Amino acid sequence: MISATELPSTRPYLIRALYDWCSENGFTPYVAVKVDASVQVPREYVQGGEIVLNVSMDATSSLKLGNDFIEFKARFGGKPRDIMVPIQRVMAIYARENGQGMAFPVNDDEVSSTPLTAVQPEPVQSLPEDDPTPTSPSPSRPALKRIK
């Protein structure tokens, strides 16, 4: 029996599923990436340590959505570039037109060659009935920021 720590990450499978959903429904799939030294993208387009990439069939060639990397060729400013993004650096995949998609946690403390482990959901804390003030969300919880 395989233990939970030996299971492969679900992230690449979810990315492929959402890519297919976007493509089949006429949406443009965008991938938000947290950039570090392991990410091969044009650095002049990185803003705040992040980049959003159009990974639609019209914008890319030789697209490979693998279990470890997303790889493709694309033009930036008219110049062809080879793009390679480790799966664990993907923060989100979503449809440009409506923002629907999925966000993923990206741990900057991880070494990029370290395999991903399952992320355990945070326990829900119930509020006392006499306290109407909700607690703020955990600062480590990922949030999807739409960049135009």
Rank of each mutant, 00 (worst) to 15 (best):
N67W: 07
P86N: 07
V35P: 04
G48M: 03
R81C: 15
G99T: 08
L18N: 12
P123I: 08
A37G: 05
E97I: 04
L127N: 13
P132T: 06
P134D: 02
V85A: 09
M91W: 02
M84D: 00
V119E: 10
S56M: 09
A59D: 12
P12Y: 03
P128G: 01
F76H: 04
A17N: 10
V55R: 00
T60F: 07
A103Q: 14
L7N: 04
E44Q: 15
K73P: 00
P29N: 09
K145C: 01
G78L: 09
P137T: 09
R11E: 02
V124Y: 03
P115A: 11
L7Y: 01
N54K: 03
Q88A: 09
V39G: 05
E24W: 02
C22R: 00
L144K: 13
N98R: 02
S3Y: 05
P121M: 06
N54H: 09
E129N: 08
T133P: 00
T114W: 00
W21D: 12
A95D: 08
K34Q: 12
P139K: 07
K64S: 14
R141C: 04
E122K: 14
R89D: 03
V41H: 12
P142A: 10
M102P: 01
I2H: 04
N54S: 10
Q40I: 14
S61D: 10
E122V: 12
K145N: 10
Q125L: 14
T135Q: 12
P134G: 03
M91K: 15
E122R: 15
D68T: 12
D82F: 11
D130P: 00
L53G: 05
D36E: 08
S138M: 03
S3H: 07
T10Q: 08
A103I: 06
K73T: 11
V41M: 12
A103H: 12
F76P: 02
K79H: 04
L144P: 05
S62C: 06
